[in-house]
Design a protein around this nucleic acid. Structure first.
Lengths: 138, 138
DNA sequence: TTAGATGCAAAGGGTTTGCAACGTC
DNA sequence: GACGTTGCAAACCCTTTGCATCTAA
C-alpha cells in the first residue's frame, strides 16, 4: 500500500499549513475548492485521514462538533473558550518529562500528550461582565 | 427552568457512578434499560447533557467515535491506547498551578484543563512485539 | 396546576464507503 | 499495466428534536 502524491493531497496540506486556525474538514473543503473546484468531500476526508496517519497533520477531537485539523506539528497546547468555542494555541513550554514520568509509573508506552485549557477568552469575559450588569439578558 | 428529579435521571447517574470505565451513551442506555426497560435513547442523551451541564458527570470528546462519559468528577488525567482505543485513568497529581500560570500569561480566564496521554498499553505493546517477530502480519 | 421530562420516531449532520473512472508510479 | 486515488452519491451512525403525553413539585 504505497502512498501516491496527488494534486488533491498536496493542495489540502498546503491549505492546512498556511492557516493558523484549526479548521474543520468543511472549511478545508471550501478552501481547497477555490483551487480545485471539482474536489469532493470524500476526497478531503480520505486525505485528512491519510495525512493524520502519516503524521503530517493532527486531528483534534475537542468537543461534540466536527473534528478540527491542525497543520502545526510542533508540540503545543490549546485553549478552548467555552463561550464562543474558539480555539487558541498556547505558548507554554512543552513538558516532555511528564511523559517519561507517567511511562515509568504505569508501564504504558507513552508517545505524546494533549493538554487543553478551558475557560473564557477576553471577549467572552467582557460579555459575561455585561450580562451581569444587565445589558444582556438571556 | 427548574430541574426535576426523575427516576430516569437518577438511574443514569447511578449507572455512571458505579462503573470505572468511560462508557458511551449506548452502553449507558443498555445498562439503564435493565432497570427501566422502556427508557428511550433520547432521554439518555438529554439527561447526560443535563448532568454534564450541572457538573455531575463529564463528557469526554476523545476521538472521532461516540462521546464517552465519566462519572468520576475529581480532576484526573487519562491515557488512551492507540492500539486498542481503551481509556485509562492516570494516577498523576493534578497540576493546578499551571492554570494559574497560563491565565496570567494569556489573560484568558482558565477554569480547568484536560490532559491526555497517548501511546500503547501493555497488551498492545506485546502485540507490536509479536508483529515485529513475524507472528502477526497485516 | 404547570412547566419540565419522557417516549417515540423522524430528522440532522459529520463522516465513511461502494463503485466505476482516472492518474500516478 | 497495476493499483492507489478520485468524484459522486448513498449509506452510516451518533445525536438532536418535535410533539403529544406524562409527572414531579
Amino acid at each position: 500500500m504505497n502512498r501516491r502524491q496527488t494534486l488533491q493531497k498536496k493542495t489540502i496540506l498546503t491549505v492546512l499549513r498556511k492557516t493558523d486556525t484549526h479548521p474543520t474538514a468543511d472549511w478545508i473543503y471550501d478552501e481547497v475548492r477555490k483551487v480545485l473546484p471539482h474536489i469532493s468531500k470524500g476526497t478531503v476526508y480520505r486525505n485528512l485521514k491519510i495525512l493524520s496517519e502519516d503524521g503530517e497533520v493532527s486531528e483534534l477531537h475537542l468537543n461534540g462538533d466536527a473534528s478540527r485539523y491542525d497543520g502545526k506539528m510542533s508540540p503545543h497546547y490549546h485553549f478552548r473558550c467555552e463561550g464562543c468555542g474558539k480555539l487558541y494555541d498556547i505558548d507554554e513550554p512543552f513538558n516532555a518529562e511528564i511523559d517519561e514520568r507517567v511511562m515509568k509509573k504505569t508501564g504504558f508506552m507513552i508517545l505524546y500528550h494533549h493538554l487543553e485549557f478551558r475557560g473564557f477568552c477576553h471577549t467572552c469575559q467582557n460579555n459575561k461582565e455585561r450580562e451581569k450588569e444587565g445589558y444582556i439578558n438571556e
